[in-house]
Amino acid sequence: MPDARAFPTPRRMLALLGLAALACAAAFMLWDARGPWSFLLPFRATKLAALLLVGYAVAVSTVIFQSVSGNRILTPAIMGFDALFILIQTGLAFGLGGLAVSALDPRVMFLAQVAVMTGFALALYSWLFLKGGRSLHLVLLVGIVLGILFRSVAGLLQRLMDPGAFLTLQDRLFASFNTVDAGLLGLSALLIAAVSLAGLGRLHRLDVLHLGREGAINLGVDHRRTVLGCLAVVSVLVSVSTALVGPVTFLGLLVANLAWMLIRSHRHALVLPAAVLIAAICLVGGQAVLEHGFGMATALGILVEFFGGLFFLFLLLRGALR
């Protein structure tokens, strides 16, 4: 490859991405700062923290998921993970009723949702990935069908439930980048820190997953345990991002693929931070530009889905689905 030498090394690329992310964060905090700092800084910092948490959760969950599934097209969102989380939110509200839901601490409720989500995701998805060599078309089809199923059942339950329960649920479901559910920020950060610390020492096992199920077993990696562990981490991360801002379908696809392109390495210790930084740049930079450059003329979620969706089509047309 002639351009291999001119291309920045992974470490240099990480440094560049880090600088860009810092610049975006500074712009988000300081741009167009009219009004008292004592209000502006905490207000914007909360939003920034939410954007960063979501970016982290989406980026890391997508990269891990792609390594588990062994391709660059599938993401948790495309496989229906966030639809499953919404179904669980709806199902719990439906089962418990409006009074119980509004009486319960939302954080307790959230933890219960994450636990149920992890259990269901492991039960539903592990069989798809434990046996190596499944057709990508089959997996993709299963994911899309599951996603539609979860959304339909959630929609049905929302129509059936009593209006009081629906009102409390509605608060949760209407989360977006502009109306972040700030009450869950602290708990979300804790959850993310916990799964990240648990995974940190095991990143090299993810590298080995590149060789597929048989290659990983040959090198002594317990493939089953690694895949289940990864799916559990993905479930927690998707729960966090969906609870905070609702479903974002194509953001993960966009940032993970950009990370693989910019960091020319197979090592997750380099690709994961890059994906997180790219997600931070997209979300924080995008939100700063939208709020101050375009006066909130459109929503960040819509833009991200637009460009992410175009990118998905580009990947499909380029023949990545083989």
Binding site: G215, L219, G220, H266
Partner: peptide, 18 residues
């Protein structure tokens, strides 16, 4: 043996030391 990631020959062979 299918590998999705962009691995160099040296990267691949180094996996043998894992």
């Amino acid at each position: 043996n299918h590998v999705v990631a962009r691995l160099s020959v040296r990267d691949l062979v180094a996996f043998g030391r894992y």
